Simulated assay, not measured.
Amino acid sequence: MKRVGARRAAILRGLLGVVAAVGVLLVPTAAHATPSPSSIEKQIDEQWNKLESTIEQYNDVHNQLIKNRAQLKKINARLEPLQLEVDLAMSHVGGMAADAYKQGSPGAVKAMIVSGSPTGLTEKLSFLDQIARHQRQAVAGAAELRDKYAKDKAALVTLTDAVAIRDKDLGARKKEIQKKVDDLQKMRIRAYGAAGANDGPLRTGPCPVAYTNDKGGRAAQKACDLIGKPYIFGAEGPGGYDCSGLTKVAWASVGVHLEHFTGDQIHAGRAVSRSDIQPGDLVFYGSPVHHVGIYVGGNTMVHAPHTGDHVRMASIDRSGAITGIRRPG
């Protein structure tokens, strides 16, 4: 009996051990904390900083392609009439040479009739040489200009073909970019919910903070008028804007042209210090530069932040360290 009791005790101890182990496994683990909106925004900013440089590269390449094709169109428009001018000149001068050969100069005809000597032929050949020189002079100007345009066209065609290849490659990556854009938007929705994905009010106060009637002030006012428009990658309105598209349109409203590319805009106008910043000045971020906003006063800018967001007011310190400040115009 003792042996049976001892065996039962051992079994019981084993079962208690198993129960204890299972109990440990069944104890609910601490739930993972839901990411805070600020942590999600930080992730979005980090991912967007990488993505936006690609978007700006696309803007740059596509703009260059458009310019090259426009320049080719102008060259072709000049080449056709120049070629026609050369052809007509050659035809006209060729006709003059043929008539001269048939009729000769008065001196040559006289020499042939009066003397019948070979000097008539010599004079005729001399006259034809003069005609040939006149022919070369008549077409040289048009032909030289035609050849210059043809050379320029050949060089531009080579460059345009290379740019077109890059543009096509970036266009093929558009789906990949758009997928990343969509993923970022899903992150925002998870953080805020679909109804609150705008990260607070789009206006934080008067915009511009203090209005001035110079070009910068009016450009700032234009940007303020676009608050609420959705961010659309590669867009410069009217339905939506990306960062450099917004600043381009704002300054275009006062007659100042900016390229749709932050890499170009950071060289526009002149550099100003933060202590001298005025409404309308462009504020740049990133290295290399990939984001820009337009200053509206009170340490505030209007910018198109990133996908899923809208044109809005924000502190100029919101997007990280400022790379540079420029004043166009």
Rank of each mutant, 00 (worst) to 15 (best):
A89N: 10
A89L: 15
A89E: 04
A89T: 10
M90H: 10
M90C: 02
M90N: 14
S91L: 09
S91K: 11
S91W: 05
S91H: 04
S91T: 03
H92Y: 08
V93L: 09
V93K: 14
V93S: 13
V93C: 01
G94F: 07
G94N: 07
G94V: 05
G94M: 05
G94W: 06
G95Y: 05
G95S: 09
G95E: 06
M96Q: 14
M96I: 04
M96F: 00
M96L: 06
M96P: 06
M96Y: 01
M96H: 06
A97G: 10
A97T: 07
A97P: 03
A97N: 07
A97M: 09
A97H: 05
A97E: 09
A98K: 13
A98D: 10
D99Y: 02
D99W: 01
A100K: 12
A100V: 03
A100Y: 03
A100S: 12
A100P: 06
Y101T: 00
Y101S: 12
Y101H: 11
Y101K: 06
K102Y: 08
K102P: 01
K102V: 10
K102E: 10
Q103L: 02
G104E: 07
G104L: 05
G104F: 10
G104S: 10
G104A: 12
G104W: 02
G104Q: 08
S105Y: 06
S105E: 08
S105W: 06
S105V: 07
S105C: 12
S105A: 14
P106C: 00
P106M: 00
P106I: 05
P106N: 03
P106Y: 00
P106T: 00
G107F: 04
G107K: 14
G107L: 15
G107T: 13
G107I: 11
G107W: 09
A108L: 12
A108Q: 08
V109E: 04
K110T: 11
K110V: 12
K110M: 15
A111N: 07
A111W: 01
A111C: 06
A111V: 01
A111H: 05
A111Q: 09
M112E: 03
M112N: 08
M112W: 02
M112S: 03
I113W: 03
I113E: 05
V114K: 06
V114T: 08
S115M: 08
S115T: 11
S115H: 09
S115D: 09
G116L: 01
G116D: 03
S117Q: 11
S117V: 00
S117K: 13
S117C: 09
P118I: 00
P118N: 01
P118F: 04
P118W: 00
P118G: 08
T119I: 06
T119A: 14
T119M: 13
T119H: 04
T119R: 10
T119V: 11
T119N: 11
T119Y: 11
T119Q: 14
T119K: 11
G120Y: 04
G120K: 04
G120L: 11
G120Q: 04
G120I: 01
G120F: 03
G120T: 06
L121E: 12
L121C: 05
L121A: 13
T122N: 02
T122M: 13
T122V: 11
T122W: 04
T122L: 13
T122D: 08
E123Q: 07
E123Y: 05
E123G: 12
E123A: 07
